[in-house]
Design a protein around this nucleic acid. Structure first.
Lengths: 357, 357
DNA sequence: TCGGATTCTGACACCGGTTACCAAGAAGAT
DNA sequence: ATCTTCTTGGTAACCGGTGTCAGAATCCGA
């Protein structure tokens, strides 16, 4: 046998093959270059010709091959989501938001969880970006706060949006989730209920959001002449378990705090367990406030007062900006607007009440 | 100006460009075809040549462009996850499992939520599959149970794996999550605790899993000489809210059931609320069992006894199979094994106790 | 030493789009 | 009628890899 390599016979699958740009060109009686112009919205095509081509495209159900297009354009039509936040609801909401913006745009979403603790993290990330030639990437906390990651993207020339609590980058690269303001809202609520001995459970220091939520909380209290006692501040890790342990810890303090603000819902849910185990009730003995308004907040008992972050909305905005970058073929400088910011909103439920006594 | 169209000057981004297969070929003193052979593990390359090429590849950090490769192979190196299950934790676990299998394989994960209620659903799905030329797709319930979707995939010739509760397809296309067995485990547990008046809250009938969980539950009770009273069966929709309302409904029945099995954790969490609102306590007055063992199960009070489904594991298996299909270049028939099945396991926590009296 | 089988290798066309470059037709100006 | 200017479309080359298939290199026994 003179043959070489393996020769998969490519069994002729069912029916007609996918139409190509050549089919369109033939049917329209024009060159494929003209069809290409229509696809790419070039203004140099006569209206009549354009309409005819568009009609034929719709008729035979042609849609250009993203791979071939990508190869020629030197970029893929993929948008990436890179994250290391383990909260499923955060991740899914972000994905849904991005997909809201991407629907019908021809882009697809590639998800890429990662672990900054991994020694090969940076190398892996670079390989991922370089190989896939993504049209853009969205980074969420806490990867979004890593400037080494930003440096790689700048070097490779890949468009990106960072979701962050603070405008740490040029405005066109950032979407701000105003965690500080959310912290203030929580403080305001508790202060208005008359609480003065308030406990605070932070997230891990590696998350900027944790500092911001804390900062806003302290600021608002201060503005109202209240002070967060050092003794009532404790560090958690954004997990349910740390919520339990830190909550238990705080409840042992003398005098006992009458309210606890946990920097996210999972920890707040843990605090509820600690309250119960301590033989206390919420909100009669202790008020609890969470942050995020994920599902857990409304399914625990009592349903949590919390601060809602518009995650899905943020995802949508991020993807919209990225698509905007790609379409505006770097012909003009990106608009010099301020970084778009989203504001969290307080959601009052049953876990907070007036301060006892 | 004689020029045409717009000519983005492709400003030379920083540094050296990505190495191509030609660079490798030149450095190795061979043709690019030979390099291609090495990349694709062709056995027809002399060991010495292969090693030399591999060394050079590693040295200059070459990695083949997925788009170009895909174009030539007539398929992308993307694997899709198509789902309509709204539970974030299910979705994320599935993604993580798939990524476990895909890590280092050169494939990327594209997510594609969908809505079967949408009138354009099938057309959209077909476009998605045709355009992207995916290497494979994983379908989860309930899209996975739609035979029109299967038909489209067969017609286009796209590899797929369906996650389902029942072996409804050829074994190579299915991974079975044995929900029936899980239902039995829940029944066994409650029966052993002495419960005889047991309520059941089903999921929506459009989910096969709901019927299976029910079926297994009934079967096991029957085997033990117990019978599920019609009056204690009620239909929910896998949501927290329906858990509350259906739970409240069941608690009104006379005589009151001493245990309630909800077909998923969210509904079980809702039942806990209903129990509390009825002035009862769990597990003293009513035992509650859920299904899935998602985070909500351990964060509510009391932590739920539930049936754990190995979602991540299932995702991993699914992606592994798909990658297997792609590598084994359809030269031999797929192995005729039985459909791999995964078994759920009972997790006993605090929401179940001996039947009262 | 030579034919033949076996093992490797490279030239070339091609995947499905894109751009560069050029040429030609139409419209307007002189 | 001739010269510009403005649109439009054809051709070839390219993006970065692959399959085809002929032919070179090597090994073997006779």
């Amino acid at each position: 046998m003179a043959d070489d390599d393996k020769t998969p016979p490519r069994r002729g699958l069912s029916g007609e093959k996918k139409p190509t740009i050549n089919d369109v060109a033939r049917l329209a009686g024009v060159s494929k270059k003209t069809v290409s112009r229509v696809i790419n919205q070039s203004p140099f095509v006569k209206g009549e010709t354009r309409e005819n081509i568009n009609r034929i495209i719709a008729e035979i159900g042609f849609s250009p091959d993203p791979q071939a297009r990508g190869l020629a354009f030197r970029r893929s039509f993929l948008i990436g989501l890179v994250y290391d936040n383990p909260n499923p609801q955060y991740v899914v909401n972000m994905q849904l938001g991005m997909l809201d913006a991407m629907r019908g745009s021809g882009y697809e979403l590639v998800v890429h969880p990662c672990n900054r603790g991994n020694p090969t993290f940076l190398a892996d990330f670079r390989r991922f970006i370089e190989r896939q030639k993504l049209s853009g990437v969205v980074l969420t906390p806490s990867v979004s706060e890593d400037d080494r990651v930003k440096a790689i993207l700048d070097e490779i020339g890949c468009a990106y949006i960072r979701i962050a609590s603070v405008p740490v980058d040029e405005p066109q690269h950032i979407i701000v989730s105003n965690d500080r303001q959310g912290g203030r809202a929580a403080a305001r609520h508790l202060a208005e209920l008359g609480h003065t001995r308030i406990g605070f459970i932070s997230g891990p220091p590696s998350f900027r959001s944790s500092h911001e939520r804390y900062g806003g909380f302290v600021e608002e209290l201060k503005d109202r002449g209240l002070k967060l006692d050092e003794n009532y501040i404790i560090q958690g890790a954004y997990t349910f378990e740390t919520g339990i342990s830190c909550g238990a810890e705080l409840l042992k303090r003398e005098p006992r705090p009458t309210a606890i603000f946990a920097a996210n819902d999972e920890m707040a849910a843990g605090v509820l367990h600690a309250v119960r185990r301590a033989g206390l009730t919420c909100p009669n003995d202790v008020s609890v406030v969470g942050f995020d308004d994920f599902q857990i907040a409304s399914s625990v008992w009592p349903p949590l007062t919390t601060v809602r972050t518009p995650t899905r909305e943020i995802g949508r905005m991020a993807a919209e900006k990225l698509i905007g970058f790609s379409e505006a073929d770097e012909d003009e400088a990106p608009p010099r607007e301020a970084a778009p910011a989203t504001s969290p909103a307080l959601v009052v439920r049953d876990s907070t009440g007036p301060a006892p006594r």
